[in-house]
Amino acid sequence: MKTSILATGLCCIAFAAPAQTPVLTVYAGDYFTSEWGPGPAIESGFEAFCGCDLQFSTGDLLPRLMLEGERTQADVVIGLSTDVLARARESGLFAPHGQDLSALTVPVDWPDDTFVPFNWGHTAFIYDTTRMDAPPATLDAMRTLPDGVTVVIQDPRTSISGLALVLWVKAVYADQAGAFWADLAPHILTVTKDWSESYGLFTSGEADMVLSYTTSPAYHIMAEEDQTKRAALFPEGHYFMAETVGKIAGTDQPELADRFMAWVLTPEFQKVIPAANWSLPAALPQADWPEGWADLPLPEKVLFLSETEAEALRVEAVEEWRAALSQ
């Protein structure tokens, strides 16, 4: 008890909103609400017209929801990736969104009645033009990289982007995925737990290519005016990833939650996404993208496994990856 008293004294307590203002509690990923993420703009944008207090609560999304179950404080959850939706849906905590999805501009069909995508991107290998003049032109060329070229990737067992990579390879190679990994294995410098560690290794010059997103070069171009980081675009297609927003069935603010869900699909919300989230807006025609974004090279072909396909392949795909890289 002494512990909690002491530390409560040290910790800043969230300031309470005036009693009559309704509070919308939004669970978000950790990165989301930092001053470098989209959270602050979204909060002030929504509060400007909702007559409510939007409070973000950050941390692990899905594990936390699963632990809390029906008791969860969340009204809305933002940031669930496409590849965890099956498990989120299975929890039974989410209500149908009831939104008109005609405004969506994602490059895949989105028949989902529960989760609404708010951003998207694709997996891609990023390279540095000052270190690599002839990047592989196809995914298949990754199997025959020149000697000494190194790639750093994320672990599919601990990272969403790592999981997307094995699903990407599985989508392209199906039964031959194991052979692809065996060919790429000598070039894999190392595997990291998170995306950020991989990316750090790449930018510090340790690896020649890194598994990241097609939108990664945008940060370097727009925030750093650095044109040297590029995504290697492959004709086989790139794996589609989106982050979604969902409404909790047991919310005590159903109306506010609905309004928030609807607002996610408006241009005002969507325009925040690119530069704060470094991903593509999910409901904004390309013509309306912020300056510079329309010029970003994107792959022509998009690969996407449906939730059920992905869930069915996941364990096998990860095990093929593990087996090939453990040799």
Partner: peptide, 11 residues
């Protein structure tokens, strides 16, 4: 995290 990153992979 140390073991994975410097261990070079799932081995």
């Amino acid at each position: 995290a140390v073991a994975l990153t410097l261990g070079g992979g799932p081995k």
